[in-house]
Nucleic acid binder design. Sequence first.
DNA 1: AAAATGAGGTGACAAATGTCATCTTCTTTG
DNA 2: CAAAGAAGATGACATTTGTCACCTCATTTT
Lengths: 200, 200
Amino acid sequence: MIRLFIAEDQRMLLGALGSLLDLEADMKVIGQAMNGEEALRSILEQEPEVCLMDIEMPGMNGLEVAEELVRRSAPSKVIILTTFARPGYFERAVKIGVHGYLLKDGEIDELADAIRKVIAGKRVFSPELTFNVIREENPLSAKEQEILRLAALGKTTKEITSELYLSSGTVRNYISEIIHKLNAKNRTEAAGIAKQKGWI
Amino acid sequence: MIRLFIAEDQRMLLGALGSLLDLEADMKVIGQAMNGEEALRSILEQEPEVCLMDIEMPGMNGLEVAEELVRRSAPSKVIILTTFARPGYFERAVKIGVHGYLLKDGEIDELADAIRKVIAGKRVFSPELTFNVIREENPLSAKEQEILRLAALGKTTKEITSELYLSSGTVRNYISEIIHKLNAKNRTEAAGIAKQKGWI
DNA sequence: AAAATGAGGTGACAAATGTCATCTTCTTTG
DNA sequence: CAAAGAAGATGACATTTGTCACCTCATTTT
C-alpha cells in the first residue's frame, strides 16, 4: 500500500484528488494540508512514501517545503504538481532533486501512474517541460531577486533601503542593472517579466 | 438520473470532478469542455439538466456562456464554480440568473448536494459571498481601470497616452487619482491592490 | 605581494512620476 | 435656461527613478 500525502491550497482540487487516489487499490491518502508549514510538519511526522505538492501556497511554498525535506533527509519522495510551467520553478525543482514535476493541465489518470513510477525508483516529468521549453537560466543574483521582489510590491527605493540596509544609490544601481538584464524599461515591467518566468 | 455537464479549463480538476460526480448513484456526466465556445455548443445540443461552469476560460468566459444560454432559453441550469470571490463576478452572475455560485475553495461534498438542491428548484450560493464578504465596490471608473491595467504591465505614461489618445497630463492626473482612491503610494502598489481585489 | 573580483557606495544628471490648482467643452439635470 | 457635472487638458512644481562614471574596502586568485 502506497502511503500518500497531498499539499494543495485549493480545497476542491485537494478533496477531489484525495478521494480519487484513495479509490486506487494500492494507495491510501494518509494526510492533506492546505499550506506549506502544515505540510512540512505533517510530512516529517507521518513519513508518507510520496507527497504531491503544489507550489503556490500561502506561507511557505512547495519548493521550499521540498528543499527543507531534502535538507532534513526525510524519506518521503516529492512530486510537484502545479499549474505553472515556469522554467524557473522547474529548474529549481530539479536542482532540489524532486522525484516528479507534473502540470495540473495533465490527465488525472497519469497521476496514479506517475506515483507508481516514482515508487519504482523512476522520476517523472511533464513532457511539456523537458522538451518544448527552452531552458532559460535566471539571470538575477540572489540580492537582485530580493530587491525586485520588494519593488514588485510597489515599495519605493527608500523603503527597500531600510528593509535591506543598503544606501539608496546602491538600490538604484541594482534596479538599473536588473532592468538592463531583463531588457525592460522600468522596474514594473522588470517585475512582470521576472514573475512570468518564475524568477522571483 | 441527473445529467451533468462540466466546463472547466484546468484539465486535472475537470477530470477529477467528472470522475467523482460520475460515482454518485443519481448522477451522470454527459459532457465536458475546456473552453466557452465548445461548452456553449455542447450544452445547447445535449441539454444537460445542470452545468458546472468555470468563469475564467480561454475564449468565451463562463458568465458569457450562461448569459447566452439564458438568452436562447436553454433548459439547462447553470452553477458557476470559480476560484474568485470577486464581487463583480458574483453581482453579474446573479443578474444573469444562474442557479448557483460556488467557490473552488469549498468542499467537494457540498458540490453534489448543491446539484441536487438546484434540481429541486433551489438556488445555492457560497456563504462567503452572501454573508461574510463585505461588498467592496470597485472604486475605479472604466477609464481608470483601463489605465491602471496598462500601467500594471509596466507601460510608461507616454505609451499609455498613445494607446488611449489622451494627453500625458491627463494620464498622470488619472493615475494620481487612482493612487489616491486605492490609498497606495505609487502606480505599482496601486496595481497590486487592484489586482488582489479583482478590480482590474 | 600584486592583481582581480565583488559588494556596496557617491554624486551628478536627465527623464519620469505624482500633485495641484485652474481651465475648457460638452452633457445632464433641476 | 442656468447650474452642475463629467472628461480632458495645462502648467508649474517637488520627488522619484534610471543611468553612468568612478570610488572604497575587503576577499580571492595568481
